[in-house]
Design a protein around this nucleic acid. Sequence first.
DNA 1: GGTCCAAAGTTGTCACTGACAACATGACTC
DNA 2: GAGTCATGTTGTCAGTGACAACTTTGGACC
Lengths: 212, 212
Amino acid sequence: MTYHHGNLRKVLLDRAAAVIAEQGIEALSLRALARDIGVSHAAPARHFKDKADLLRALATEGSHRLLDYVLAAADAAGTDPLVRYNALGQAYVRFSLEFPAYYRTITHPEVAAHADDDLMQSRRRWHEIVADAAREAQAAGWLPEETVDDIVIYSTATVRGVAAMLADPMQGSMPDERNLDAFIERMVRLIIDPEAPQKSLTGNEAPKRKRT
Amino acid sequence: MTYHHGNLRKVLLDRAAAVIAEQGIEALSLRALARDIGVSHAAPARHFKDKADLLRALATEGSHRLLDYVLAAADAAGTDPLVRYNALGQAYVRFSLEFPAYYRTITHPEVAAHADDDLMQSRRRWHEIVADAAREAQAAGWLPEETVDDIVIYSTATVRGVAAMLADPMQGSMPDERNLDAFIERMVRLIIDPEAPQKSLTGNEAPKRKRT
DNA sequence: GGTCCAAAGTTGTCACTGACAACATGACTC
DNA sequence: GAGTCATGTTGTCAGTGACAACTTTGGACC
């Protein structure tokens, strides 16, 4: 082992993500992390000013991955605006399950309250992405009377809530692993149902599809 | 000051709630709490086995208050099932704003993961309350094709998400204090719109009001 | 009214943590 | 090969949660 580790920063981030995924953010300790990696207890300070700084870095990286993940899913879903919007929501929930460490960090209150510019920009980007998709879905007849902002916030809140409830293992009536995909699909369909446009209605019915 | 404090347990809970409301759960320290109250650093241990135990007690008390708060709001809303269901959702979000310490504690991952029987029962009770209300709303024609469980989980997830986003001060596009009530009303109306039953439709239209 | 005793506080201590300061190492530059 | 600067290291400090051992107090009981 050389005196200089070489890529300690990356190793710290990876190992921290693993610890968070296994034992939660509370259980993360800079000293334990350093011990684990085989480096002195003060080494992490060279790369992260303090614990919050490490979490912030993790959240920033995670938020970029989230955007990539979600955009890839939306693109794979095709051009139908309703299908695309739905795919966006499902991908968000899936990300929270596939990368729990990133997701927990991103939504951690302490981190959220002291977000840096990079993290703030990721949030704005998320808002834009969903807003664009919502506008297209509105053009296809969905929720014509609501503002785009309201729709975005509502949709974000819902997928965030679904993710939170899936992360809470003690919640009753939660699906087991085999039914997870179907569960997510049902939940997001309650936000936007890609198969419920005018086609299922007879011609004389109102073309606007106001919800509820 | 007598040697025996008298009602230290209650004072601890109240002061802890105040600290959490002001500075968050992370900032809560048993020693600082004891110092603050003017009692020795080990005194809290007589009443709460450890820090998690104090948080658990706070969460339990909070969950009872939440149920009372929400039921009172629902009862005040009248007998129309849709209005009642809507009131339930709005009250949930309002509780999170009015009693942030309780709400944060209830939804804290660590607390949620190690819930005691009392807390678990409160959760089941919440599920029952919402399920009963959802059944009545379904009988009035709302979302006839969904299972009650799905509706409950979906609704809970959404109000939880809305509460989470309101608690996050850095979120863009969030309402200022004057518009809060209207914002909450709009968000919950997207779950269930109490003013959108069949009455607004002409007679030959489908009586079932499938969403989206 | 004196005695016992358990509940409720106290002091003292331990291991652990995050943060900081001072020092050591080594890679790169000129 | 001297200088310098990023990157590690050692040493230390105050704060924390948890625990053990001791003290005070107010009733219960006779």
